[in-house]
Each structure stands twice: as structure tokens, then as C-alpha cells.
Design a protein around this nucleic acid. Structure first.
Lengths: 176, 176
DNA sequence: TCGCGAATTGTTATATTATAACGTAACATG
DNA sequence: CATGTTACGTTATAATATAACAATTCGCGA
């Protein structure tokens, strides 16, 4: 089973997430003779700023701010499409939003656990789930080609036993 | 396991699908002291015209034609929301489309098998999938509350052994 | 290094999906 | 039949996504 669920919900050095993602992206681009242009890299970086999926227009806002010039939607959507094709990011259909893939290149099922409270999304790839979906498809004579699996609920942080509610040190939702 | 996958992909008396859906709808409405108004019933009926999900604006077009007067989007979305809340229909996020639920009232997982070719969508509820998703959630300390599970691929009809490809009678994609 | 074709980005306009806000009509109930 | 509630009509607009075409940049062979 592949998952980044622990990482997503715990304090961690998020800079390493970003760096790792960028390294993987460079490698994958080289491998596929594709170019990780500045725009594409910026979008990927923005999607890795947090473990929460971002919408295209959020990306547009942020990229416009960063660059100082107005970036039009097509630019964003082109970068998104490029990153999607390489498997570097995923689209979360129920949210119309996009998120970095923690294990691009590996064949996996992209199942997401999306927190309705904080909006974080952890990705899980679970062989037995894949197998079961495959066998359910087989039974129905359905030729499985792709999937979109999204679970909604509360992440450990948001559901957790609200500890230290009375202490001065309340839960620290900060990232990292 | 609950599923309508056989029905969806085979010739059948579709009028019975529609009638059954409407009966269930009436029952559920009575049970919930809700009103199946003409607009709501029309939308439900339209969603049961085929086993292919329809978008809100397709519903709008068809309802406008049927009624002779222009129906505005909010009317459609209100009917959709009503039917969604009662569990009479589902939203398929990846398609921005809606489809009638073949087994409303029963607790189920709404997993869809969507044909990329003909657009039909069969619903499957599979206990072992639910259980597995639940246990995966548990492992990740994720409090599961809802889900959106969509499989893409080819339905039996569209994947099937392309018979008569060379004869004059090409494949007939008609419904029923 | 020049120039050419391909890939990328810029720009404008518009399609598609969904909702806000507010007024009007129908209903159900005492 | 008066009243509160529920549903619908209407207008405008938000949010998401793409089409079409021009301009630019890049890689690479001549």
C-alpha cells in the first residue's frame, strides 16, 4: 500500500515534500523528453504548497501575484493538462481542483481521502482495493480503464480527540 | 451485491425501469413528507429516459421543449437538489451529470461503471468494496462520511466482440 | 549561426456548469 | 380564508473550462 496520509496530517518538513516533488518531476520530464517550463514548474510548486487541492483560478490568482503580470486561464489549464498527462498531479473531480501526486510514475489507483473540514487530501493506493475493483469490473463484463475514487470525511486532525482544548497550547494547525 | 449493470447493457423493457423508479420516488416522498411536484417528476423521468447520465443543461433543454416554456437553470438545479437529497438520483462528478438511482433508500456505496464509448453508467453496490474502503479509512484514521467512486471503461456492449463489422448491418447502439 | 518546424505561451472571446437574490405563486393547515 | 411555508419564476452573475488564432521561444539540422 502506498499512501502519504501520515505525512499529510502531521507536522512535517514540507519543504522536503516540495523538493522531492520537483525532483521527481524533472526526472519524469527528462524521461519523457518533455520540458518542465517555468510556468509548469510554478504550477506544480503551487500545488505542492500545501496538501490541499487548489482550483484552476486559485492557481491563476497566485501565479499572477507571483509573476506580477496577468496570467490568463488557458495558461493555467495548459500547465495543468501537461502535469496531468505526466501523472504529476491529479484532478479531484468532486472539487474541481488539482493536487500534486506523491508517487508519480508508479502504477496506482489514485484514491483520495478528502477532509471536509480542513480540505486536505491524502492519496492512497491500496492493492486490494484495486484488485477488488478489477474483479467487480470483470464480473460486470466491464473493461476497466480508469477510475476516480474520492472519499469524504474527517482527517485525523479534524476528527481527532480534541486534546489540549483547555491548555494554552491549542492544537497547532500550522503546516510544518 | 446490488447492481443494475445487466439491465443497463441489455435490451430490456425500459418502460418498466421508469415506472419502477417513479413508484419508488412516490413512496420515498410520502415517507419523507416531501412533494413530488410536476417539475421534480419530469426531471426524474428525464433522468430515467436512458441509462446515460444527463447534464443540468440537457435537462433544461428537454424540459423546456416538453413544456413549451423556457425553464431557467435554477428550476432545474432545485429539482436536482431535491432528488439528490432524497437519494433518488446521483451526481456523477467527473461528468457534471446526473443519473437516476436504481435502488434508492437502500444504504449503498454508489459506485459507477461509466462507459467511455456509449456513455451509459451502471451502478454497483458491493459490500466487500465498502468494507475495504472502511478499513482503509480506519487504518488512516480517516472518518469516512461519503464517497464518490467512478470507474471508466467499456461496457459489455461497446467492448464486446465486434461482430458483423464487415456486414452492412453495423453495430446498433440504440437503446432497447 | 542561421533558419525552419515544432512546441509553448499570449490574448481575446466564449462555452459550460452552477448559484445568488429577490419576487410571486401554490399549498396545507388551522 | 388567513397565514406561514414551500416551491417556482426571473434576472443576473459566479465559477470552471475551452476555442481560436497570433506571437514567441526552443531545438536542431543545414
Amino acid at each position: 500500500m502506498l499512501t502519504n496520509s501520515r505525512l499529510v496530517h502531521q507536522a512535517h518538513d514540507h519543504g522536503r515534500c516540495i523538493n522531492a516533488a520537483l525532483s521527481r518531476a524533472e526526472a519524469l520530464c527528462t524521461e519523457n523528453q518533455a520540458r518542465l517550463t517555468p510556468t509548469r514548474e510554478s504550477v506544480l510548486r503551487l500545488l505542492w504548497q500545501s496538501h490541499q487541492p487548489l482550483g484552476a483560478y486559485q492557481l491563476q490568482d497566485q501565479l499572477s501575484k507571483q509573476s506580477g503580470k496577468n496570467i490568463a486561464p488557458p495558461t493555467i489549464y495548459r500547465a495543468i493538462e501537461f502535469l496531468l498527462q505526466l501523472g504529476l498531479i491529479h484532478r479531484i473531480a468532486s472539487l474541481n481542483a488539482y493536487i500534486g501526486c506523491p508517487f508519480p510514475g508508479s502504477d496506482h489507483s489514485n484514491l483520495f481521502m478528502i477532509c471536509s473540514d480542513c480540505g486536505s487530501a491524502a492519496e492512497v493506493s491500496h492493492n486490494s482495493i484495486n484488485d477488488l475493483l478489477q474483479s467487480a469490473s470483470d464480473k460486470a463484463n466491464f473493461t476497466l480503464q480508469g477510475q476516480s475514487l474520492e472519499l469524504f470525511g474527517l482527517c485525523p486532525n479534524c476528527a481527532g480527540p480534541k486534546i489540549q482544548l483547555d491548555s494554552q497550547q491549542s492544537q497547532d494547525p500550522s503546516h510544518e
